[in-house]
Structures are given as structure tokens and as C-alpha cells.
Amino acid sequence: MGYVLGLLGAILLAVVLVGALGASRLRTLSRRVGSFPCSARPGTLPHASWSVGIAHYAVGRIEWWRCWSLSPRPTRTWYRDRLSITGRTPLDQAGQTDQYLVRCRYDGVDFELTMSSGAYAGLASWLEAAPPGRRDLVV
């Protein structure tokens, strides 16, 4: 009986520890300067599920971190010179005010992001501020 209680206590402690690490990681990511909430899904599958995440501007790239993960590395990294916006649609008609569906292409692969209008303005400005010769990044 004591062995079972000890095992259950160890499992409970592990669950609490993993939950605390996940919450700490999420808080740290969301409080970084240049971070914004951003969900992603493949663009080729219109009924694919969304992955909730946080995007963060880094030097010449955007790093995208999945919210429900303990990984110390970003799930996706998009470099500015290979990323383009191919379209956007306001999601007001879907009951999500101040949200955009943003269609993107990276190295010939299409994907979609959802973000606030402010985050979209920042993304479009960041892409348009690319070095000379790369002004075709925003439609």
C-alpha cells in the first residue's frame, strides 16, 4: 500500500512539475518584446486543425512556438527573404472581430496564419522593410 501511494505521489509531482514548466515557458514566450499570438495550419488542407502558437520577431526571421509544447526550440522558423504574404481575409464575418486569416508562402509551401489586425500590420511592415530588391513580399 505504501509503495502505491509513493508511486501515485511521484506521478502527481511529475504532472505538476510538467504543468509548471509549460506555464512558465508560455509566459516567457508571450512576454518577449516582438511576440504576438498567432495560430497556424497548412494551406493545402482547408479543413486541417489549427495549432495555437506565439510568433516572435528575431533578426531576419520569425520564430513560431507551439503553445502546448515543452520544446526549447521554435516549431517553425520563417526567414524574411523567403516568406511572402499571398492574401488576407478579415474574420469579422466568422464572429472573430479584429482577426485576420493571412495566407503565406514560404519556399513554395503555402500555409495560413490567424492574427490580430495589429499583428498583421506589424508583419506586413516587417516584410516591406526588407532590403532593396525584395519589395514583392506583401500582396
Score class of each variant (00 low, 15 high):
S84N: 11
C38F: 02
E128T: 11
S71T: 06
G19V: 05
D92L: 14
G34P: 04
Q99M: 13
V18A: 05
Y79F: 12
R88S: 14
R88G: 08
P46H: 05
R135V: 02
E63Y: 04
S30H: 11
A121P: 03
L123M: 08
L70I: 03
E63N: 08
L123W: 07
A94D: 14
A129V: 11
C67I: 13
Y3E: 14
L127G: 04
G6M: 10
A119C: 03
Q93K: 15
P72E: 10
W126F: 05
A94E: 15
A55P: 05
R27M: 10
D92C: 11
V109I: 13
S30A: 13
F111A: 03
W64V: 02
Q96S: 14
R135G: 04
G9D: 14
L12K: 12
G122R: 01
W50E: 01
S125E: 12
R134C: 15
S117W: 09
L70H: 01
S71R: 09
M1Y: 12
C67D: 05
W50S: 00
A129N: 12
G53L: 02
W65F: 08
G87R: 03
W68K: 06
R32E: 11
G60D: 08
A48H: 04
R103D: 04
R32N: 09
A23Y: 08
L29V: 07
R82V: 04
R80T: 04
V33M: 10
V109E: 10
L83R: 03
T44Y: 10
R41L: 00
R135H: 13
G87S: 02
R61D: 06
R61N: 08
L45T: 12
Y106C: 01
G122M: 00
V4C: 15
R103P: 00
P90H: 05
G34H: 03
L127H: 05
D107T: 12
G2N: 10
L101C: 02
H56M: 09
P74C: 02
R76W: 15
G133R: 02
L13Q: 06
G133F: 13
D92I: 13
R88V: 07
H47V: 11
T44F: 07
P132T: 04
R73N: 07
